[in-house]
Computed example of a mutant assay.
Amino acid sequence: MSAAADGAEKYLARAGDRLDHDEQQLVRDHAARLRRVGPVPVGYIHGNNQPRNWLWSTSGLALVDFERSRPAAHVQDFVILATTQWADHPDREKAFLLSYGRELSDAERHALRCLSALDAVNCLAWGPDNGDAEVTARGRRTLDRLMKEDRP
Rank of each mutant, 00 (worst) to 15 (best):
30 H>K: 12
13 A>R: 13
114 C>M: 13
32 A>K: 15
70 R>Y: 03
117 A>G: 14
56 W>G: 00
136 T>V: 01
61 L>I: 05
81 L>A: 12
78 F>D: 04
104 L>F: 15
16 G>P: 12
49 N>A: 10
131 G>R: 05
152 P>D: 14
145 R>M: 13
21 H>P: 10
117 A>M: 10
97 L>F: 04
138 R>D: 02
80 I>D: 08
5 A>I: 03
139 G>I: 00
100 Y>A: 01
83 T>D: 01
109 R>S: 05
14 R>N: 07
66 F>S: 05
75 V>S: 07
147 M>N: 04
152 P>I: 08
123 C>V: 09
9 E>Y: 00
8 A>R: 03
109 R>P: 12
100 Y>Q: 06
143 L>P: 02
61 L>N: 10
42 V>S: 02
77 D>V: 02
62 A>P: 05
88 D>A: 03
31 A>Q: 10
16 G>K: 06
107 A>D: 10
16 G>T: 03
104 L>T: 09
135 V>N: 03
135 V>W: 04
92 R>L: 11
146 L>G: 11
132 D>Q: 09
15 A>P: 06
143 L>K: 09
97 L>T: 06
23 E>K: 04
137 A>Q: 11
20 D>I: 10
24 Q>M: 12
8 A>M: 00
41 P>V: 11
149 E>V: 13
105 S>N: 05
39 P>R: 02
16 G>M: 08
1 M>N: 00
43 G>P: 04
21 H>Q: 08
126 W>P: 08
99 S>H: 15
125 A>H: 09
88 D>I: 00
103 E>G: 08
34 L>F: 09
70 R>I: 08
6 D>V: 04
87 A>L: 11
64 V>N: 00
111 A>R: 02
59 S>Y: 14
39 P>Y: 12
